[in-house]
């Protein structure tokens, strides 16, 4: 069992949990992820390691409550435990020869972009962070990202916070203004990553994306996380999750991630009773 030692609601839909997992905390690196399972009946779901504390032996995860598993996880309180927590999985991000980098985060993707920016910043790399959100209500990690960036640009679709516009507008503007980036790291919804890659392609800027296909084991044994990169089948859990964005077949990934849409809707509808039961168990 893995106890929850800290919890914060970052916005109405995004939660931060700090979980005691000393083995994982000892090894975790930016770009890696864990797989959790709340209880015996739950799915195995991957989440990026947003932060780690080797001394305390804890891992921080930040997640959007999109479906049943993340809602069940979000319902857990400090002092409670979750059943399974495995990691660190995946290959850590490689930062060779980077002097100046643009880190682009979209929505909850900022939770994944933040540790990358932090790692780069601590290595002395010049980091421009561009964080995009739909509106001001869902902005997360603003102060944290500011603290680890050389320049921080906040974008919202409707202009209710920061500048109005998409992250790609800002990125293009910065590049056109003469900023020479050794790499762009883009993390967020698949369409956002796709458009960042389309933006950087003409400039031939190396663009790293962190892919989020559906996973089960996270060790390369189910093939469910397969993605096409440069025409080859790759397993995101062991070959990634980071890939060269200019080679990724994003449309295929979007399609594969839709596989259980109907079933998820059904589950989320039914899940009210599971949450009720959870509440009852808590009272008892």
């Amino acid at each position: 069992m893995f106890p929850i030692v800290n919890k914060k609601e970052l916005n109405s839909n995004v939660t931060l949990l700090e979980i005691e997992a000393p083995f994982i905390a000892k090894k975790a690196q930016a770009g890696q992820f864990i797989i959790f399972r709340v209880d015996e009946f739950s799915e195995r779901v991957p989440l990026t390691i947003a932060d780690y504390d080797r001394e305390k032996g804890t891992i921080t995860i930040i997640f959007q409550k999109v479906g049943l598993s993340t809602q069940l996880l979000g319902a857990k309180e400090i002092g409670e435990s979750i059943l399974d927590f495995v990691g660190p999985l995946g290959v850590a991000t490689e930062y060779d020869n980077m002097k100046k980098v643009a880190v682009v985060g979209g929505g909850v993707g900022c939770a994944i972009a933040y540790p990358q920016a932090k790692a780069l910043h601590s290595m002395g790399v010049e980091v421009d962070v561009i964080a995009g959100f739909r509106n001001e209500d869902i902005v997360i990690l603003e102060e944290e990202m500011k603290a680890v960036s050389t320049n921080f640009y906040l974008m919202t679709d409707d202009g209710t916070a920061g500048e109005k516009g998409f992250v790609t507008n800002k990125l293009k503007e910065l590049v056109d203004a003469g900023n020479q980036y050794d790499a762009v790291i883009a993390i967020g919804p698949v369409p956002m990553m796709k458009f960042v890659c389309l933006t950087t392609k003409p400039y031939d800027i190396k663009t790293i994306v962190s892919l989020n296909p559906i996973m089960i084991d996270g060790t390369g044994m189910c093939g469910g996380c397969r993605v096409t990169v440069g025409g080859e089948i790759k397993f995101a859990c062991v070959d990634g999750p980071d890939f060269d964005g200019h080679l990724v077949d994003f449309d295929e990934l979007m399609n594969r991630n839709s596989v259980y849409k109907a079933r998820e809707a059904e589950l989320t509808r039914d899940h009210a009773c599971r949450m009720d039961k959870l509440a009852k168990d808590l009272i008892q």
Binding site: E43, C222, G223, G224, I233, E252, S258
Partner: peptide, 18 residues
């Protein structure tokens, strides 16, 4: 890569283990 294509490992793991 179409939706609906599984490896046997994924299919059986979902059913038996999960």
């Amino acid at each position: 890569a179409l939706v609906g294509v599984y490896s046997a490992n994924e299919y059986l793991t979902r059913i038996n283990l999960m």
